[in-house]
């Protein structure tokens, strides 16, 4: 009796998982079709010399893995994304909540931020190179700034748009200021904060790759630039596909986290 019910449960969950996998497969079929087409055209040998077929790229990635260049450069790039993104978004959330909740901070700092927001942060990169040299630091600061702004702006908007009614009812129940913050304001603005994080993450990847293209000693962007100098298209596409895979992977991870956090919202954007 008992084993039967667990059996049925496991069958049900397997069916459920199969359905999900099937749906994902159907949904991503255009992407898969495009990759297959690329491979077929590549095998037929009608691609221009500067576009290698997927299987050549994969085998080149294996060569790079064996040489150790793949891990070294990917890690350099990812490290910058992590440090810049986590630092920038942490500051963005904290400052956004402060300026959104507190009129004096809002009046003082928001003008500065909205004034500097449209400045392309990557233009500051040459200055940071002058200050910190071509190392880790100059790039980390640019990525930090690039990730900070969208997260700040979205957090500020979210906090500002918290319905007064929710705050009043919490106050009515004698909630402390801290409780209002952690149990009303932040959950209320969470959807906005997460959108900001998603924009910030995408920007962090753009800026990391750009900074590495401009001036760097290693990293995926630097590999792409070297590849251009030596006309090594396998290397170029290896670095492009690595940054693409990292970008998509981290974005999907963020979306999964958002689904978990916002299960109550029931939105199905992806």
């Amino acid at each position: 009796m008992k084993t039967e019910s667990t059996n049925r449960q496991s069958i049900n969950s397997a069916v459920e998982a199969g359905k999900v996998a099937y749906r994902i497969l159907i949904r991503s079929s255009p992407v898969i079709a495009l990759l297959l087409l690329w491979q077929v055209v590549g095998l037929a040998g009608i691609l221009p010399e500067y576009v290698p077929a997927p299987h050549t790229i994969v085998s080149y990635l294996l060569v790079m893995w064996n040489e150790g260049t793949l891990v070294k450069n990917s890690w350099a790039t990812l490290q910058l994304v992590y440090v810049g993104f986590f630092g920038g978004s942490a500051l963005g959330i904290v400052l956004g909540v402060l300026t959104g909740r507190n009129a004096i901070f809002g009046r003082l700092f928001d003008p500065l931020v909205s004034m500097t927001y449209p400045i392309p942060k990557i233009a500051l990169f040459p200055i940071f190179v002058i200050w910190f040299g071509i190392g880790f630091m100059s790039k980390a600061v640019v990525v930090f700034l690039a990730a900070f702004y969208p997260v700040y702006i979205h957090t500020f908007d979210g906090v500002r748009n918290t319905p007064e009614l929710h705050i009043w009812s919490a106050q009515n129940f004698n909630a402390s200021r801290l409780q209002i913050l952690t149990e009303v304001v932040i959950p209320d603005s969470l959807p906005q904060i997460l959108s900001g994080l998603r924009v910030g993450l995408a920007l962090a990847f753009i800026v990391v790759f750009s900074a590495e293209l401009i001036q760097s000693d290693f990293g995926l962007g630097q590999l792409a630039l070297q590849a251009r100098q030596f006309n090594n298209y396998e290397l170029m596409f290896s670095s492009i596909s690595m940054i693409a895979i990292f970008g998509v992977f981290h974005d999907r991870l963020l979306l999964l986290i958002r689904q978990r956090l916002l299960y109550w919202q029931g939105g199905d954007h992806s």
């Binding site: 753009i206 670095s239 970008g247 981290h250 974005d251």
Partner: peptide, 25 residues
């Protein structure tokens, strides 16, 4: 059905990565 997966895959890819390739072409 065709475009949505392509776009949402392309969204988190830094398209600037194609710049060195475009310089070649």
């Amino acid at each position: 059905f065709v475009l949505d997966p392509l776009i949402s895959t392309l969204y988190p890819v830094p398209r600037i990565a194609f710049y060195p390739l475009l310089l070649v072409i």
